[in-house]
Nucleic acid binder design. Structure first.
Lengths: 194, 194
DNA sequence: AGTTATTTTGAATGCTTATTCAAAGTTAGT
DNA sequence: ACTAACTTTGAATAAGCATTCAAAATAACT
């Protein structure tokens, strides 16, 4: 890859990070292309040199963050540890991402309100894959006898709902540290499973 | 109250219901004043006869629905039943509202992205009051020895998060009935508390 | 240092919507 | 039936933003 190509790739990623940041702060609809560009001391026109339009940009943000998270989840899944331990790690990691990426990761909650058909399918699919990580841990735990859960789908919904919601109330100045929150959530949600 | 006043009051409420509906379907930013009016076979101009502007309209929607829900919660609180039973009822009722009012009740998740200062305070306060219902049940249950929970605030966050999240995935065509969902959620979340 | 391919710019365009308002239509109460 | 007060209308206004694009600036390579 030439120097130019590498520079362009870096710029693309810079833009994605900036977009994530601005969208986290203001929400998708209030984050203007100008805001995103300003964060990088660029002008909005330039963004269109790298991305077709705003939707494309958001789609790439979403994809980047979800892919990174997915990689980590795969790693947790493949470890040689108890299902309870896996679930604990998955919950903690998921909370970490949810807190860090607020808007992007969660609040694109009604993707059909934002994305056009081409992207929608991929997004829904990718999210389903991610959610499946939790299903797999639950299944494994149940068959090993570690968990006792009849309604596995609902259990997963409760876990993801509870953890996704964190970013609604979380504030960096809150009285609990992120680690503390992760500890408590993991403990209480595991209590529900066993 | 004169006939005219009563008619105007009814129209106001009709508009609020229509707005709730449209906003539920499309989300706040995609619900136009025209959509809201069209639902009632009116034109958007008329809406301004009843409400100052879109924000005011949304604020009133929010307020109406939350007030109704709050009334019911007070009633649950005052009954002579076990704390576990109260929590069960509160969870079930909350789910009912969350499913019915989707957007309005929950997805105004970042009120500061939508509301101006005047309304923001009242909204935050009213939501805090509502959340407190759950705190009170938890406190009561702990002191009666029915629940064993150290981190009461976190337990409440988990419960509200899990239940609020329902509207993200819920579909009327889903394989579970609302009642079934309510049953399972209440059972699993109570398991966490006791 | 010069040439050519990239990047960036910012002004112009156009679309979507909220909001206003004067005029037209409707209604409750006499 | 009349009329004064109330409602509705729809066309006009205005603001905010995404998107385009021709021209200017910059950088890589020889």
């Amino acid at each position: 890859m030439s120097l130019r190509e590498r520079k362009a790739a870096k710029k693309k990623e810079d833009i994605l990070r900036s977009a994530s940041l601005v969208i986290s702060r203001k929400g998708y609809h209030n984050a203007t292309m100008e805001d995103i560009a300003a964060e990088l001391l660029m002008t909005k026109g330039s963004l269109y040199y790298y991305f077709k339009n705003k939707e494309e940009l958001l789609y790439r943000c979403h994809d980047l963050i979800l892919s990174e998270a997915m990689k980590k989840m795969e790693e947790i899944l493949s470890q040689e540890i108890s299902s309870a331990k896996k679930m604990e790690m998955a919950i903690k990691f998921h909370l970490e991402v949810a807190i860090r990426e607020k808007e992007i990761f969660n609040l694109i909650v009604k993707p059909e309100q934002i994305f056009s058909k081409e992207h929608l399918g991929e997004i829904v699919e990718k999210r389903a894959e991610y959610a499946e990580v939790f299903d797999r841990i639950i299944d494994e735990g149940v068959s090993k006898g570690e968990f006792s859960i009849e309604q596995k789908k609902m259990a997963r919904m409760i876990i993801l709902g509870a953890t996704n919601w964190v970013q609604v109330w979380h504030s960096p100045e809150g009285e609990y540290s992120n680690e503390k929150i992760e500890e408590i959530y993991a403990a209480y949600l595991l209590k529900m499973l066993v």
